[in-house]
Structure formats: structure tokens, C-alpha cells
Amino acid sequence: MDNYDVECALEICDVCKHFGGIIATDHINIMARSNTIFGIIGPNGAGKTTLFNLITGIYKPTSGDILLYGKSLVGKLPYEIACEGVARTFQNIRLFNDLTVYENLHIAYQKSITYTIFDGILKTKKCKEQEAKCAEISEQMLKSVGLWELKDQLARNLPYGLQRKLEIARALITNPKVMLLDEPAAGMNEEESEQLSGIIKDIRNNNDITIIVIDHHMDVIMDVCDEITVINFGKQLVTGSPYDIQNNSEVIDAYLGVGD
């Protein structure tokens, strides 16, 4: 195994999460290596999204630790974790519907703004420089995902596929170290999901970023991921390369039911 030669971007160490008597995640261990795409698959209700909520600080793990480049994220507030460099998209798209496409990116750029209220009132050089930089990066980002012409549209008016793209752009503009994509291909047809695979791979190739993807679309997952882990009923079944996963009998049982 050459896993240990490469730096680990996100490490999930023996994490459990209980909701009352329900065990949503049960001793999960994940090591996502730097600049790779890591896939998490599993049937509905397996605890995949719970895992994302644990990483982003929406939930606190009952036990275990989550490390971002060796630094623990447990106990931090969601905005602090976002500032550490974790961005995410949602299974059910959560754009700011009442804001325009352009404003959706601006709000996400908050992290990189350091000028104070006084700089804002006095319109100092620092304020102007940062706002100009923000405008420039937003423009670049929107052009790269093909939304520049639609920048003044309200997010709610975009078609579904474009909303997904905007959500990815919004996550990306925070310049994250780790980006979590929660079912990015949900509701997409074959052609769209193929295009999405391309976008995800481009993002990884053009940025210094580690991507973690949850999805049900096996074609997307198998196409983009370097490594995959399978979760069922909160338990981790197996971790390995896409080829290993496709040929693992436990995984087939989890998805198709156990044969007699």
C-alpha cells in the first residue's frame, strides 16, 4: 500500500454518531488523500449525509475525531470549519433563492474579506482592493461554469442543472481545501451526469483540492473516484479502488439484498 506516502487531507477516525437509540454512523474510518477524489456510497439511510453533517459541524460526533490536515475539527462551529477550508453542496440544493447568481457567489466570498466596517464606510484602499478581487474571481468562476450571462437572475429561476453548477461554484469560490459534494448527480440524466463527471475531474485537476463525493449514480462514482468506501446502516463495509468495490460480494448484497 502506498497510501501512507501521500499526505492525508481529511481523516475520519473511528467516528460514531447516535441519535437517541439510533446509531447513524458506527465507527467509521476514512482517510482521503490529498488531491484525490474520494467516494462514499451506500443505500438510502446508510448515514452518508450524516457523515457530511459531522464534518461540517452541523452535528457533533458522539465519539471519534475528524482531522483536516492533522487539525481536529470536532467541537468547532460550522462557520469556523468553513473558514478552515471545508465547503459543501447539498443533496437538496440550498442556494440563496432570493439572491441573484452573482450575490450567491459574493456571500460565499465572505471568508476572504478582512476589511472592517470602518474600511467599508471610508471606502479605503483595502476595501476597494478586496471588493475588486471578489468581483474578478466571481466573474472568472461564473464564466468557467457558463453562468456569466445569467449573473443577474435570481437563483430560484435557474433550471435545475444550472442550480447544481452554481452550488458547486459557490462552494469552490471559498477556495476550500476539501469540498464535499452531496449527490451532485441527483436528478440528472445520463448525458448531464457525464458532463458533471468531467466538471468534477476538471476541478480536481485545476485546483489544489480534495473532493469527497456521495452519490447513487454508479457511473459517476466509478468514473471520477480514486478510492471508494461503502456504508450500510451506519457501518463501513469496505474501502478500496472502484474495481475492488465493483467486485465485492458484500457490496452487491447491500445493494441488491442477500441471496438465499
Partner: peptide, 16 residues
């Protein structure tokens, strides 16, 4: 305006 739509999502954008 973002937070009035969703406070949680806004905090994920790094807003305190």
C-alpha cells in the same frame, strides 16, 4: 438577506 433564507447555509459560507 442570505441568512434570512437559511442561517445554516450562511454559516457554511464562513459567515460568523
Amino acid at each position: 438577506r442570505g441568512a434570512s433564507f437559511s442561517l445554516d447555509t450562511t454559516s457554511l459560507m464562513g459567515v460568523n
